[in-house]
Each structure stands twice: as structure tokens, then as C-alpha cells.
């Protein structure tokens, strides 16, 4: 008390104000950076963002034309990725939230594995895709079914999507587990009281109740997968394809990879700069609107959880 008395109240008030404004200022700095990235991208790209740009193929050595194959490729890749990642993610989340006991070493190991998957650098997934899917799986499939003819032992959209599915698996698991945990216990008890078994309860009460959470997880995964480039660098992304991929063993163009090659390998960087900005804008709009939807959904889940508990 004595020490405190020595400090005049006014100094304390000033210190408080300084602390508040200093930390508040850092928030402003971060938000300003976000806004400037967005602003510069929009300013640089919105003029080129036309309907033709979205629906046409690149022309004249990619100095003109649109980015349709890249949009299509990204969409198809994320679709296959979703099909692969979501069931795995949901089942693992159900295990973690419903079956695993607090002390279970197995469950703890899974949790740690999921966290590890979330922090492993994306380029490692690319290496894994190359070493496992292409060189191991692909080559063996070719040898077993196609007499060694090269079908699957090369980069293609399937291997790229599966690589990406691994990368986005933790995103799905975390989101779904969180949603499952918000299902109120009365609902589970009601189901059990009616004679349902645990699995029936999960299937008929828990899973339908966490549909929003599964959707959130899926959207977050798509948002993440659509923007990643490093995992597909050597597992399936192509510089240019003349035709859209119709088979799973074809290569594809992707928005993120397109930005990368356009900014480093196009014949005239300055002339194509608006196109690069426009492509960036498309990718940003895509990932942004997706994560915005996810944020809103998540917010609603949390609110529901608070109200019901």
C-alpha cells in the first residue's frame, strides 16, 4: 500500500492511457496491413476482373485472356479433396468427442498427430505426395494393372487432391469436434432414455446436430486448400493445360499456382500485372468469402451452445 500511495493517481491514469493506446495501436497496425493488401489488390485488379476474364482461357502465351481453367482446376481439386478429407475428419472428430476418454493414450496420440499435421510445413506434404502417391502408389498401380505403362505414376489431379486432403484434415477435425462438443447433453440423454444405443445416438442425434459444424469444417478446409500452392507444386499443378481435366490422371491449372507462375515466369511482367492482380483478387475473394461464411457459422454455433447450456 505504501508503494502505491507514492505514485500519484494522475501518473497511473497516464500510464493506463498509454498502455491502452499502445496496444490498441498495434491492432490498428495489423488491420491497416490487412486493409492495404486488400486495397492494393483490388485497385490493381478490379479493372481486369471482367466476365470474360473469368470464363476464357489464357491467350497469347498467357499475356491476355482469362483464367477459366485455373478456376475450374481449383474447384475440381478442392471437390476431390473434400470428398477425401471430410469423412476422415468427421469420423476422427466423432471418436475424439464421443468415444475417447480423457485418460486414453490412444486419443492423446491422435490429438498430437492432428496437431502435428496442422503444423507440418506445406512443402513437406508436397514431398510426401511425390514420394508416396506418385512414386509408391502410382508406380505400383501402373505395374499391377497397366503393365508398367505410365498412367498413375505421374503428377495428376487425384494425387494433388489427396495430398491437399491430408493437409486440410486437421482443419476439418478441429471444427467438427468443436461442434460436436456443443451438442447439449439433454439431447443425448433423451435419446438414450428412449432406448437408443450409443451409435444410434451419434447417428441420429449428434451428427445431425453438428451439421453446421461439419459444414464449417468443410468450408474452412476448402478455403485453405484453394489457396495452398506448395503441396501441388510437384504433385499435379500445370503451367498451362489446353483442355480441362476430364480424367483423374490429368494435370490441372490452379489459381494459386497461376499467380506464382504469372508473377515469375510470364513473358512481360508489367503488361500482365493487372491480370496477376485480378487473379489474386479472385483467389482472395474466394478464400475470403469462404472463411467469412465459416466465421459466421462458427459464431452461430458458439452462440447456440451458450444459449442451450
Amino acid at each position: 500500500m505504501k508503494i502505491k500511495r507514492k505514485i500519484p493517481v494522475s501518473v497511473r491514469v497516464v500510464k493506463d492511457a498509454v498502455a491502452t493506446s499502445l496496444t490498441g495501436f498495434t491492432v490498428l497496425v495489423i488491420i491497416a496491413m490487412i486493409v492495404s493488401i486488400l486495397g492494393i489488390t483490388i485497385a490493381g485488379g478490379w479493372k481486369s476482373l471482367t466476365w470474360e476474364f473469368l470464363t476464357q482461357y489464357p491467350k497469347d502465351g498467357m499475356t491476355r485472356g482469362g483464367i477459366f481453367p485455373a478456376i475450374f482446376g481449383t474447384a475440381l481439386m478442392t471437390l476431390i479433396m473434400t470428398i477425401a478429407a471430410v469423412p476422415f475428419g468427421v469420423i476422427t472428430a466423432v471418436y475424439l468427442a464421443e468415444y475417447a476418454t480423457e485418460k486414453s493414450v490412444f486419443a492423446k496420440t491422435i490429438r498430437f498427430a492432428v496437431k502435428t499435421l496442422a503444423v507440418v510445413p506445406s512443402i513437406i506434404f508436397g514431398l510426401f505426395g511425390l514420394g508416396f502417391f506418385i512414386k509408391f502408389m502410382g508406380t505400383n498401380i501402373d505395374n499391377a494393372f497397366f503393365g508398367g505403362e505410365l498412367r498413375w505414376g505421374q503428377p495428376n489431379i487425384l494425387w494433388a487432391s489427396l495430398t491437399m486432403a491430408l493437409l486440410t484434415l486437421p482443419v476439418v477435425i478441429v471444427a467438427v469436434e468443436e461442434a460436436i462438443r456443443t451438442i447439449p447433453r439433454d439431447m443425448r440423454e433423451a435419446s438414450m432414455a428412449l432406448g437408443a444405443t450409443k451409435w444410434q445416438t451419434i447417428r441420429n442425434v449428434v451428427l445431425p446436430g453438428s451439421m453446421t459444424g461439419i459444414l464449417t469444417g468443410t468450408i474452412l478446409a476448402i478455403s485453405r486448400g484453394a489457396g495452398e500452392v506448395a503441396p501441388i507444386l510437384f504433385t499435379g499443378a500445370a503451367y498451362y493445360v489446353a483442355e480441362l481435366p476430364v480424367s483423374l490422371n490429368q494435370q490441372f491449372m490452379s489459381l494459386g499456382y497461376h499467380i506464382y507462375i504469372m508473377s515469375t515466369q510470364s513473358t512481360n511482367v508489367d503488361e500482365t500485372l493487372p491480370l496477376q492482380f485480378a487473379t489474386t483478387l479472385v483467389l482472395l475473394l474466394l478464400t475470403f468469402s469462404l472463411s467469412l461464411i465459416a466465421v459466421i457459422l462458427r459464431y452461430r454455433i458458439r452462440k447456440k451452445a451458450i444459449h442451450s447450456s
Partner: peptide
Amino acid sequence: LLAGFPSVV
């Protein structure tokens, strides 16, 4: 939202 910026962007 900043986490939603792809690293290529």
C-alpha cells in the same frame, strides 16, 4: 481473416 490469406498471395 489474415489467416485466410493464402501464402502465395
